[in-house]
Amino acid sequence: MALLCVAGLLGLFGGGPFSSRHLSARDLELRYDGMVRMGTPQTLKLRVTPVHGAARIALATAYLDGVRLDGVLPAPEHVAASSEWTTFTFASSDGTPIQVAFTLVPDRFGVLDGKLRRESDPELAFRQIVYP
């Protein structure tokens, strides 16, 4: 029992230092939890540099199939979906990086693989373990 509590404190069951992940590629940064729980809201936090007054972030549609999208902050100006990517466009008046938060609720437990990219930049791949 003590071991379980220590593991919980460290974040091995989500929401702790061992669960926190950070990825970055060029002008895109992603912070997320590597361990999440089914039915519980979690946040993907992105920091992205806009190009020509807009930041276009594409999330893999396969990843979005495994979660429920509860909200995006700030609200995107435009959303376009294709079979592989769902693209969110955010307006930016100055060219400074913007922060975007996707609130998502995993719908099923197991391993959830995600990918995202900015414009046509190389994609960032991430993996989340979803506990029941």
């Binding site: 379980l4 509590c5 919980g8 069951f13 989500g14 729980r37 089914m38 519980t40 506990y131 029941p132």
Partner: peptide, 13 residues
């Protein structure tokens, strides 16, 4: 907001 089984088990423990 966390109604997961994992949360319940951790709380009980």
């Amino acid at each position: 907001e966390d109604f997961s089984v994992t949360n319940a088990l951790l709380l009980i423990v």
